[in-house]
Structures are given as structure tokens and as C-alpha cells.
């Protein structure tokens, strides 16, 4: 198992956001964590990267406990996060944002070829190489955030709500890219409110409900599960 989360409990000032969450991420797969607003999806990711301190529980990445690893050192271990709301650096150019993704790398030649790869995935970014990231549209910023994460040559790429606030066409494009990146061998842990899109590409899915894992199954299983349909896919809504 590449990443193993065991019985994770996180509380914000007495209120438990996660009440014992266990997740397993198998290498080479796309794992998704779906759930409503406030279910604890982002908290799970933020605990993995050390931006939130868990009250108890274990986070093991390739037999290494992440508890005492600093956020800034994760990228060297092959872990990257595409944060919620893209968080591109608005005062840096597109190229600089991408270079920042490769900040800790020293293999200049490979960085160059990775840059070409990212540009081939997102031709739009190539057109805007010298533009400040703050002037990009929401969709372009999301592409840049993904491209920036890829520039670190991650083995595990975690994504927090990449579809949030984007037009359906762009969401489709982003999900196509996620699949393509995964085919290259990058393991994906995807967090989404858009359960439908996420479960369609996922090998394994977890449904998070108010701090607990309510369901676990393959993407297909969850898509056809009646409870999931009712709660997240909106199939039962007939007006």
C-alpha cells in the first residue's frame, strides 16, 4: 500500500472534523474521496500534508510515518497537492509557477522535458508562458495548478476539488488529464464534490459523511449504489 491512513481523528477547537477515518491508496490507482461540504474531505488532505495536526491516528506513506515530516519536505518524497482554489502564484508568470513546481529538483535536463510534457498536456499554458498567473481564467489557473504539481515528478498527486467553480467542458478536460497522468504511473488521490465525475474515473472510492467513512467500493459499485445516488448523484430528484 502506497499510502495508508489509519483511524485519523482531527478536531478544530473541540469539534471533531474527522472521527476515525481510514483510507488506503494503492500505487498506480485513482482513489477518490467524495462527500458533501464539511464532510472532512479537505481536512483529510491537509492532515496528510501536515497543514493540520491530527489529534490521533496514523498516516503512513511507503512505511514512513508522515507525522514528523515537514510540509516542505513532502515534495522530495514524491507527494504533491493541488490545493483547493488552485492557489497559483498570481504575481509570478505561468513559466515561473511551473518552475516553482520543480523547485527542489536539480536535474535540469529532466525538468526541461517535463516542462515540454506539461505544455503538451495543456497547450493553453504554453500560449501564456509569460503571462502573470493572476490574469488567467479560472480554468487556466486550474490547469496551471495541475501542471505545477506535475513539475515535481510526483508519485502521489493529491487533488482538492479540481472541478470547483469550473465550466463543465473544462471539468471534462481536467478529468481527462487526470486519467492521462495516472496512465503515466502517477497515483491519484482525488477529492471531489462532483461525485459523478470523480467516481467515473476512480478505481476505488470512499464516501465521507460528517467525519466518517460511510461507504467504500470500486467506482462502478458506488455509482450504482442507491444511497450514493440519492445523496450525491441527484438521481432521485424528480420535480
Amino acid at each position: 500500500m502506497m499510502l495508508k491512513i489509519e483511524d485519523l481523528i482531527v478536531s478544530y477547537g473541540g469539534i471533531e472534523a474527522l472521527k476515525g477515518v481510514s483510507i488506503e491508496v494503492e500505487e498506480g490507482k485513482i482513489i477518490t474521496l467524495v462527500g458533501a461540504n464539511g464532510a472532512g474531505k479537505s481536512t483529510t488532505l491537509r492532515s496528510i500534508v501536515g497543514l493540520v495536526k491530527p489529534k490521533s491516528g496514523k498516516i503512513i506513506f511507503e512505511d514512513k510515518n508522515l507525522q514528523n515530516v515537514k510540509t516542505q519536505d513532502l515534495i522530495k518524497m514524491g507527494i504533491t497537492l493541488v490545493p483547493e482554489g488552485r492557489r497559483v502564484f498570481p504575481n509570478l508568470s505561468v513559466l515561473e509557477n511551473l518552475k516553482l513546481g520543480a523547485f527542489v529538483r536539480k536535474d535540469e535536463a529532466n525538468i526541461k522535458s517535463d516542462l515540454e510534457w506539461v505544455y503538451s498536456l495543456f497547450p493553453r499554458l504554453k500560449e501564456r508562458t509569460w503571462q502573470l498567473a493572476g490574469t488567467l481564467s479560472g480554468g487556466e489557473q486550474q490547469m496551471l495548478a495541475v501542471g505545477r504539481a506535475l513539475m515535481s515528478r510526483p508519485r502521489l498527486m493529491m487533488m482538492d476539488e479540481p472541478s470547483l467553480g469550473l465550466a463543465p467542458l473544462i471539468v471534462k478536460e481536467i478529468f481527462r488529464i487526470i486519467k492521462e497522468v495516472n496512465k503515466k504511473g502517477v497515483t491519484i488521490l482525488l477529492i471531489e464534490q462532483n461525485a459523478n465525475a470523480a467516481l467515473h474515473i476512480a478505481d476505488t472510492g470512499y464516501v465521507l459523511e460528517t467525519g466518517n467513512i460511510a461507504l467504500k467500493g470500486t467506482g462502478k459499485e458506488l455509482l450504482s449504489n442507491d444511497d450514493v445516488k440519492k445523496a450525491y448523484l441527484g438521481d432521485s430528484v424528480h420535480l
Binding site: 500534508v49 510540509t71 515534495i75 502564484f89 504575481n91 509570478l92 516553482l100 523547485f103
Partner: peptide
């Protein structure tokens, strides 16, 4: 320079800079 780029990144967003491996 690379240090300058890190400075500019940190000036906008400490958390994300950290995720990129920048020692804030």
C-alpha cells in the same frame, strides 16, 4: 534567481510555497 522566485512566492502564499518545497 531561484531564491528571488521563492521570495516572491512566499510573499503571496506561505502555505502553497511550502507545498512546493520552499523553506519558508
Amino acid at each position: 534567481t531561484k531564491s528571488g522566485m521563492a521570495m516572491r512566492a512566499v510573499s503571496k502564499d506561505h502555505e502553497t510555497a511550502r507545498l512546493m518545497g520552499v523553506d519558508v
